[in-house]
């Protein structure tokens, strides 16, 4: 009985901790050693703006690497991303970034990405499409441990991995495979979003 009381009590204590708002950490503190934002590369968005990766700092970033002319796994990967997002509709949106990075920068010009985003109703935040040079893309994929190779001028093989980065750009979760159960991915993102608020 005593044990049960302790258990219940500790549950209350834990709940109390959760309610306490974590202070928003200043963004000018030094980046963690494992942060993806150490990659200095410049990227173009589907709106043809040039951004540095580190401008995403402070957001929870959910990333897949795709190419828009892909007919096989990418539509399913994008469906997986949309499915993750559906479940996050009630979460605070301003700190969430759903990011799609092209592994085919030659074909996927900003104009091309814009068309693709429009077609898939992904023009507005939290959706964001990025492309950069071949070399920057290779580095980005290397940091995510995403493998890819060009098979023909039109087609690529690539890992189907959804990666989740925390506000500091540290890789905290990866979901591998297509149409897998994404509960743990969604829960991880929810938990991270709570940290901001």
């Amino acid at each position: 009985m005593k044990q049960v009381c302790v258990l219940i009590l500790s549950c209350f204590l834990l709940a109390a901790c959760h309610q306490k708002k974590a202070p928003i950490e200043p963004l000018n503190k030094e980046l963690s050693d494992l942060s993806i934002y150490h990659l200095p590369s410049a990227w173009s968005t589907h709106n043809n703006e040039t951004i540095q990766l580190k401008s995403l700092r402070g957001k929870v970033v959910v990333v897949v690497m795709i190419y828009t002319s892909c007919k096989a796994a990418c539509p399913r990967l994008i469906a997986d991303m949309k499915n993750v997002f559906e479940q996050l509709k009630n979460e605070p949106q301003e700190k969430l970034q759903m990011l799609l990075v092209s592994i085919d920068p030659k074909t996927d010009t900003p104009e091309h990405l814009y068309e693709f985003a429009k077609e898939n109703k992904m023009l507005n935040p939290p959706w964001l499409f990025l492309r950069s040079s071949e070399s920057n893309t290779r580095e980005f994929a290397a940091a995510l441990a995403v493998n890819y190779k060009q098979i023909t001028p039109m087609d690529f093989s690539h890992s189907n991995i959804i990666s989740v980065f925390n506000q500091e750009g540290e890789l905290v979760h990866q979901q591998e495979g297509l149409t897998v159960n994404n509960i743990s991915t969604v829960n991880k993102i929810r938990l991270l979003l709570k940290k901001v608020h």
């Binding site: 096989a72 796994a73 990418c74 441990a145 098979i151 087609d155 690539h158 189907n160 495979g177």
Partner: peptide, 17 residues
Amino acid sequence: GESRKDVKTDRNLFCGS
């Protein structure tokens, strides 16, 4: 699929593998 893991080839993990 994930060569770093001790799993058999999983074509679902790769587009076009």
